[in-house]
Nucleic acid binder design. Structure first.
Lengths: 209, 209
DNA sequence: TACCGCTTTATGTCTGCACATAATCTGATG
DNA sequence: CATCAGATTATGTGCAGACATAAAGCGGTA
């Protein structure tokens, strides 16, 4: 029983992180090979591999076959942003969520939208605009173009009850995307919709999925 | 020669993703066990394990020992945000990067800052403000508090040449952090510093590291 | 019924091995 | 000197087996 306390990949990970942050291994340094580290830590190479792999995924190490593993020169800080469903975000605030569908029609998208969605210029898309409210007060305004070809079912879905976002999240295929954040001044129409003063700063999220 | 085309964990991952997005496995459904899937795909359990683990890391599956693996009910969309060093961001735009240190002194931080940094109220901190410019035009304004106790070396570093951010990224230990994004209206002083009109929308990033 | 402890089971991880793959390095050749 | 083919090597991944661990579920007891 007991136990010889084996070395876990988390142990290795911790030790390696320590050596990086303590600058025992400096940026751009080549670190020992997996085999060497495995010998040093007294564990299997697979264990070292997993440790190094997770660290590399975090961006602190750069690995290349044959070349070896080196400490990243410019540790790109990565942050994981969780994009909640608006309903949950609002309910988490303790507010009551409602949403109102302002518009739902099919039309040819603008050129900018077509470019982002990589659509043929003949294709049309479903355009939705909606207002999400917390306790009856406008919280967010949504302006969405949906590529009907990619998600045929949405044409027949009833979006007055469930928001388009939620519908898509639960019904649609999933793929990578692209996101950009920005701050803009409220235009007059936006101000009206969101019930704020024109010129107030708004936080916008632009996504392509 | 040939080869018997083995099943890779990426194959398994792709197939599982397909079953999720095609709704063959619906949200909240319990999916087969690793052993069963391994048998079905004709590969080792470890292979299935890795596939499912990566999918779970992406938030599409939820796994619990003994309980099994199920399709996430609310697939939280996660986005990885890369926070570049400002200098690189600016140079990537093809502009020339310069920065100007506006202020550098040690003083007791405000209460709000102390709270975020979990500092004793006796501790003092290094306060830096700087302006980052692209082609001579103000691009970003930085207001930074550094916990000197955590990074003693910074007190003697020359920050007029290298920005504090860059110095920290290359010299300091690394740890988890916290980030929040927001849009605000430019105040008069900020507008002056960044050379914009007061009231213009600004994008702010607040971080604790 | 309520509670507690044991069994069962699905996932988590380590090991040791093998082979695949990418990329560097070497040396031969023109 | 330039170039290219082949040897070398570090990482990437697959496999089978074993044990660890969390937690659900079962059964017995009060």
């Amino acid at each position: 029983m007991t136990g010889v306390e084996r070395t876990t990949w988390q142990d290795v990970r911790a030790e390696v992180l320590h050596r990086i942050t303590s600058r025992r291994w400096k940026p751009d340094d080549l670190i020992p090979t997996e085999v060497e580290l495995a010998a040093e830590f007294g564990c299997a190479r697979a264990t070292v591999n997993r440790a190094l792999r997770t660290i590399a995924e975090d961006g602190l190490l750069e690995r290349r076959r044959k070349a070896g593993t080196r400490v990243a020169r410019h540790p790109v800080r990565r942050a994981t942003l969780r994009i909640p469903i608006l309903r949950h975000e609002i309910e988490d605030l303790g507010a009551r969520y409602t949403h109102r569908l302002l518009r739902q029609d099919r039309r040819a998208p603008t050129k900018a939208v077509r470019a982002r969605m990589a659509l043929a210029h003949t294709a049309d898309a479903l355009r939705l605009t909606a207002l999400h409210m917390a306790d009856g007060k406008p919280y967010a305004f949504e302006d969405r173009w949906v590529n009907v070809a990619a998600v045929p079912d949405i044409a027949t879905a009833d979006l007055s009850d469930m928001s388009a976002n939620e519908w898509l999240v639960t019904h649609a295929p999933f793929s990578g995307g692209d996101i950009s954040l920005a701050a803009v001044s409220a235009t007059r129409t936006m101000a009206l919709r969101l019930d704020v003063t024109p010129g107030d700063a708004l936080f916008t999220i632009e996504r392509t999925t």
